[in-house]
Design a binder for these strands. Structure first.
Lengths: 119, 119
DNA sequence: GTTTCATTTCAATATCTCTTGAGATGTTTA
DNA sequence: TAAACATCTCAAGAGATATTGAAATGAAAC
């Protein structure tokens, strides 16, 4: 997913807040399946009102999706948008500068190669 | 350069503003050598006061460095911090999730492989 | 040492963001 | 349909952030 500048600005703003960054972490760990709003709120220590505010913010920024399931509203990380943001950072913001790309590529290999065990 | 959560939050906040994002782009293109504050300000259409405000913000966030050179103050992108941010996004924020890392790695290869010509 | 140049600092203002608590909405169960 | 549950919405207030123009700082040239 290719992000334009406005989408990237919104994504950066969304991630620049402690509560929301924690929420994204929780939702990434939860995977495609996602988590109910209440569970996310509890996980990051936010009130229901505050959780709703921040989850809406993340959704507006395109970083998470939501769906209703019975009484709950389930939020899930938008992995496509997250990888799009990494891509934006390398390609648009950093203009594909060798130092940044090389460092990032190495980090990717070190932390979490998709088809082999991490070191 | 490994960013902790506070540094990453500051970096995201710094990049979530249009003027500052443009400044980072200009400074990345300029390379290690950097650019005087006035030139950066002109490049992004900011007044001297506004340019100073935003450059300070970027410096506090660790994304750029500054040095005095005669009358000018030269700002330069901190490539180490920028690649650290990409790394943070993949490893800490996205927990090394395969979808994100794979997408980002592919994007890196597509846009700007460090040891071969870009496609 | 006065002038010019480049940049920062300051103060005032406007705007955005976050938090809180109360109340509203939609869903399920009895 | 009433009660319980999960979440959202709203309004008020506190705090952070951005913009502007004027004044202050630091460095170089005359």
């Amino acid at each position: 997913m290719k992000l334009d500048e406005l989408q990237a600005l919104a994504a950066f703003a969304a991630l620049s807040q402690e509560t929301r960054l924690s929420m994204v972490r929780s939702l990434v760990v939860a995977g495609e399946q996602g988590l109910p709003a209440g569970v996310v709120g509890d996980a990051v220590g936010a009130s229901s009102s505050s959780a709703s505010f921040h989850l809406s913010h993340l959704e507006r920024a395109g970083l998470v999706t939501s769906r209703r399931e019975a009484r709950s509203i389930i939020y899930a990380a938008n992995f496509d948008a997250l990888s799009g943001l990494v891509e934006f950072l390398m390609r648009d913001c950093c203009q594909g500068h060798p130092d940044v790309v090389a460092g990032a590529t190495k980090a990717a290999a070190d932390c979490c190669a998709p088809d082999e065990q991490a070191g």
